Amino acid sequence: MTPLAITLLLTGLLLIAALAGYALYLWRRVWGRERQLADQQAQQHAALAADLRVLAGSLLQEQVPLIEGAIRIKVLLDNYDSNLGQDPRCQVFQLLFEATEQVPTHSAWKALDKTERRRHEANFSALELQHKAEARRSARWLLDEVLPKNSEAA
């Protein structure tokens, strides 16, 4: 083998080793980022579970209006686990959400005249009478069987 061929071979091997080292460095960064992302998603999932526990408990203790609690639970369930939101035991939250999604909120609610507000409030009362027991059963099911206990979420 000629000295030029040996030099080219050694240069090629050094280049391959350097590129392999750089590739390993990049892969370690990717794996670290994936771990970080998985940790972040787990923390978000645990926070959603904790929020759902608070809302379901508040709904059961009547600390939050039924309609408002059901809407908030539905939105959190969609973010926590979309399949869980479609579970028949949670359909009451979806039903109440759909029944009230056209109702104005915040400043638009305040801008409504009193007769329009009373009409919506009467609808809320009717929905509450019709679905209160089912919503309470669903909230209890979430607390007892679905959502991790506080110590499990941490």
Results as ranks from 00 to 15, higher is better:
75 V>M: 07
3 P>A: 04
48 L>H: 08
70 A>W: 00
35 R>G: 05
65 P>Q: 02
126 A>V: 07
149 K>T: 14
39 D>K: 04
94 Q>A: 10
144 D>K: 15
135 A>V: 08
122 A>T: 07
45 H>S: 02
91 Q>M: 10
21 G>I: 11
75 V>C: 01
81 D>N: 13
45 H>G: 01
114 K>L: 13
141 W>R: 15
133 A>L: 09
148 P>N: 05
52 L>Y: 07
20 A>R: 12
91 Q>A: 10
135 A>M: 06
112 L>S: 09
120 H>G: 03
47 A>R: 03
134 E>Q: 13
80 Y>W: 06
35 R>K: 08
150 N>A: 15
125 S>R: 07
145 E>G: 11
111 A>I: 03
150 N>G: 13
110 K>E: 12
12 G>N: 09
124 F>P: 05
82 S>F: 13
26 L>V: 13
35 R>E: 09
132 K>L: 10
45 H>T: 05
147 L>P: 14
93 F>C: 10
89 R>V: 10
133 A>D: 13
36 Q>Y: 03
61 Q>E: 04
61 Q>P: 00
24 L>E: 03
56 A>W: 03
54 V>E: 00
5 A>Q: 12
102 Q>L: 11
5 A>N: 09
144 D>Q: 14
117 R>S: 04
138 S>M: 07
63 Q>M: 02
144 D>I: 02
66 L>F: 01
115 T>S: 06
16 I>Q: 03
71 I>Q: 07
63 Q>C: 01
9 L>W: 15
76 L>S: 11
129 L>S: 11
117 R>K: 14
39 D>H: 04
30 V>Y: 15
